[in-house]
């Protein structure tokens, strides 16, 4: 089995798909990083080629609806799952079938891709919910997050619409980039954190009223709970522990 290694970009992945068709590979594995050893076959590094990528995408556009195309992109954003082989199987099924296969739930790649799509959707939804802006002295509402998947591209529009009258930054600490809204447009940014700002939510850079509202929010979270109905299992299912460190209400008062 041959292994195709691409450069972690979406165009790179599509270039790898192009390569599969160009050389009529059947037994193939696409991944972001070269595996240590490959038993029977060779490792090929794919050059990202925008023209080839576009040809694959155009081909898919003829076979799939917007939702179908989106689900391939979403599986790509699920960068920690390594679903490239599912994506390839889905693409092959789509291109070889005379009719639209998006709802062909008798096909395992379709079922799996739909599941991955749902996982990405859930993470995106969580980030819409779990962002906790802190007002800085520069009058910018800031939050640093560590999502399971690369969902910032998927939540940008939501925050742009909702927080139209305040400046804000959402920063993916895990992937090292973020988005900044300056009251006009949203731009992609990277931040070099200084030594002092390392204590992530340091009072040094917070607006003087910020701590007040954080305390009020913590108080509200505590008071709105009904102790005689306590159900930690359900609580943790909805708010998994890995998100706690960025949630104001789960920090000590």
């Amino acid at each position: 089995m041959d292994v195709l290694v691409y450069d972690k970009t979406f165009e790179g992945f599509l270039s790898a798909v192009f390569y599969v068709y160009e050389y009529k590979l059947t037994d193939v594995h696409i991944c972001k990083e070269a595996p240590g050893t490959v038993m029977f076959g060779k490792t090929i590094h794919i050059d990202t080629d925008e023209v080839k990528a576009k040809r694959v995408w155009d081909g898919l556009t003829k076979k799939l609806s917007r939702e179908g195309l989106q689900s391939i992109y979403h599986a790509y954003l699920a960068d920690t799952l390594q679903e490239e082989d599912t994506m390839l199987a889905y693409i092959r099924h789509a291109l070889s079938s005379p009719r639209n296969i998006e709802k062909d739930y008798s096909n395992f790649a379709v079922l799996r891709l739909q599941r991955v799509d749902r996982m990405v959707h859930r993470e995106r939804h969580r980030m819409k919910a779990f962002i906790r802006f802190k007002l800085t002295k520069d009058n910018i509402f800031y939050d640093g997050i560590e999502p399971d998947f690369n969902v910032i591209p998927l939540i940008r529009e939501h925050f742009e619409k909702r927080y139209a009258d305040q400046q804000w930054i959402i920063y993916d600490l895990r992937r090292g980039f973020g988005i900044y809204y300056d009251l006009k447009t949203v731009q992609t940014i990277t931040i070099t954190f200084s030594e002092e700002s390392q204590g992530a939510d340091s009072v040094l850079w917070m607006d003087q009223n910020e701590a007040l509202y954080q305390t009020l929010w913590q108080q509200y979270f505590k008071s709105t709970n009904i102790a005689s109905r306590k159900n930690m299992k359900l609580h943790i299912r909805h708010v998994p522990k890995r998100y706690w460190k960025h949630l104001t209400e789960k920090s000590p008062m």
């Binding site: 919910a129 979270f221 709970n225 102790a227 299992k233 299912r237």
Partner: peptide
């Protein structure tokens, strides 16, 4: 509609 958090009794906030 978004549930921004859940209380310890498992209800949406």
């Amino acid at each position: 509609g978004i549930c921004h958090t859940y209380t310890e009794d498992g209800r949406c906030v």
